[in-house]
């Protein structure tokens, strides 16, 4: 190879590889939406439950099957007390819409805003657990000392894998802040 050809060739290799580096950096960021899609498909981390609330077609109710749904809630970094629904677990038929009510109490005088983040386990049930209405869709505001009923309506998809007998719906309530993406 002559000196000039070599230089050209080196530049070409460098160019391609640099492009690749930039691409991989972008790929790192692309992993974020990819991960969401992946979670939606697999139900990883109970994430998909938050995405499938738009259930257009009404589901047929499968009376022959009963699924236990459990409720729990955690509060983190916000002066609230949040009570789980009266019944810790509920037996529902797949396809049947059910509403349960959480209750939030503000423990301070000032106004506070919270955002609930849901999580569903087991992972394989997550994508079949649909919330049609949920206090977690929007931020919740409580004036000082206020108590508020927070309903959630959900349907268990009849396509839920047969081996799943119990589903746990958990909320973690965080202080809402302005740059919060709607995590419904």
């Amino acid at each position: 190879m002559t000196e000039r050809n070599l230089r050209k060739s080196n530049r070409r290799v460098t160019g391609w590889l640099s492009l690749w580096v930039v691409g991989m950096f972008g790929f790192g960021y692309a992993l974020v939406p990819l991960y969401s899609v992946f979670c939606e498909i697999t139900g990883l981390n109970g994430k998909s439950a938050t995405l499938s609330e738009v259930s257009a077609a009404p589901l047929t109710i499968d009376k022959s099957r009963t699924v236990t749904v459990e409720f729990t809630v955690n509060v983190s970094g916000i002066p609230w007390r949040v009570d789980r629904p009266e019944t810790v677990r509920l037996n529902v038929h797949p396809g049947e819409a059910t509403t349960v009510i959480y209750e939030a109490h503000s423990l301070v005088d000032a106004m506070t805003a919270g955002q609930a983040v849901p999580s569903v386990t087991p992972a394989k049930a997550a994508r079949h657990f649909r919330k049609t209405e949920c206090f977690c869709f929007t931020r919740q505001e409580l004036v000082g000392g206020e108590s508020k009923l927070m309903p959630v309506t959900f349907v268990v998809d009849p396509k839920l894998p047969a081996e799943v007998k119990t589903i746990t719906l958990s909320y973690e309530v965080y202080p809402a802040n302005e740059n919060l993406t709607n995590s419904s």
Binding site: G46, T72, N74, S76, S119, V120, T168, S170, E172
Partner: peptide, 28 residues
């Protein structure tokens, strides 16, 4: 049911079986 308030923890009692992560915002 495992979860965490602040950072990731993992609950482990060797004689009772393996460990599992307790992750804030998620339930395992």
């Amino acid at each position: 049911l495992l979860t965490a308030k602040d950072v990731i923890h993992a609950w482990w009692v060797p004689q009772l079986g393996g460990k599992k992560d307790a992750i804030p915002g998620y339930i395992n």
